[in-house]
């Protein structure tokens, strides 16, 4: 009896650090349940995992086919484009693996199942993020790693310590930026439940755009993904540093190292949007 009371006390304590730990714990528990659920249909799991891998692989095959007809795209060679592709794919894949089901939020609002999550003693963001957790999404990460490996073999990089350090930093920063976009898109669905597809424009659309060199796109589009939805920090700017290429929009050299900062800032904004969205749901019930 005393133990139960204690446990409820602990769960109720509202320290921010406690919330994060609680959230991660709930995330782990729910994600584990989803993994077990998918294993109930093994054939389908194998097929979807393979499908995920094949889908992304064919995506790259399309680029290979393009380069079977041309030597460069926007002045970038196949190896360099492969580098962009790999970085974009891994960053996006990690974010997609972690919280890729945020687009189901609108459906949960519509059918009322969101309420069943609200009566659980766990932070909502963690519960929604872990919803439909799917290991098959590792397919994209794997494929991204393979393409990145290929790129690093083919491209002649003048490696320095800074460049080596930048590689993992940009992958994690990039995943953070994409994750923030996922969360913001989720928050938007509290307001417009049917608009989940808008998120695809920024997530899948953003990832596709980042697979190609910035020199291909119109300047306004490049400005948009640098200053409005700062996806350029995922791979374009750091990759320009690694490849010793001129930066788009004449940006200063240090921006290549900004991805973690940009990720934190985006995360904070997305977090605020999420809180506002949840508050509006709890005040309107729709």
């Amino acid at each position: 009896m005393a133990e139960t009371a204690e446990a409820s006390e602990a769960a109720g304590r509202a320290e921010p650090r406690g919330r994060v730990v609680e959230g991660l714990r709930a995330y782990r528990l729910i994600a584990a349940m989803w993994i077990r659920s998918t294993m109930a249909y093994r054939t389908s799991f194998v097929l979807t995992t393979f499908g995920n891998f094949a889908m992304t692989a064919l995506d790259f095959v399309a680029i290979l086919l393009m380069f079977s007809r041309v030597d460069a795209l926007g002045g970038w060679s196949l190896g360099e484009v492969a580098l962009l592709y790999g970085l974009s794919g891994i960053s996006f894949g990690l974010a997609d693996l972690a919280i890729g089901s945020m687009d189901r939020l609108g459906r949960r609002v519509r059918d009322g199942t969101l309420d069943t999550l609200l009566v659980r003693p766990a932070p909502m963001l963690a519960q929604v993020a872990a919803d439909r957790f799917a290991l098959r999404r590792l397919g994209r990460v794997t494929q991204g790693l393979l393409v990145l490996g290929y790129a690093l073999v083919v491209v002649d990089v003048d490696w320095t310590v800074a460049k080596l350090l930048l590689m993992p930093v940009m992958l994690l920063g990039g995943a953070g930026i994409f994750a923030a976009v996922f969360v913001a898109a989720g928050a938007f669905q509290f307001v417009a439940q049917d608009a989940s597809e808008v998120a695809n424009a920024f997530t899948y659309g953003g990832m596709t755009m980042l697979q190609y060199p910035p020199t291909v796109f119109a300047l306004d589009l490049v400005r948009g993904v640098t200053f409005v939805v700062p996806l350029a920090f995922v791979n374009w700017l750091p990759a320009c540093f690694v490849l010793d290429r001129p930066y788009p929009l004449d940006l200063p050299g240090w921006v290549a190292f900004a991805p973690p900062l940009v990720a934190v800032a985006c995360g904070a904004l997305a977090g605020l949007a999420w809180r506002a969205g949840l508050r509006s749901y709890r005040s309107t019930g729709s």
Binding site: A7, S8, A11, G12, E22, D111, G112, T113, D115, T116, L118, V119, R120, P121, A122, P123
Partner: peptide, 15 residues
């Protein structure tokens, strides 16, 4: 909400 959740049980008939 989360502190309360420890003290209550909820059964949604249809869901």
């Amino acid at each position: 909400r989360t502190r309360l959740a420890q003290r209550i049980g909820v059964v949604f008939g249809q869901r």
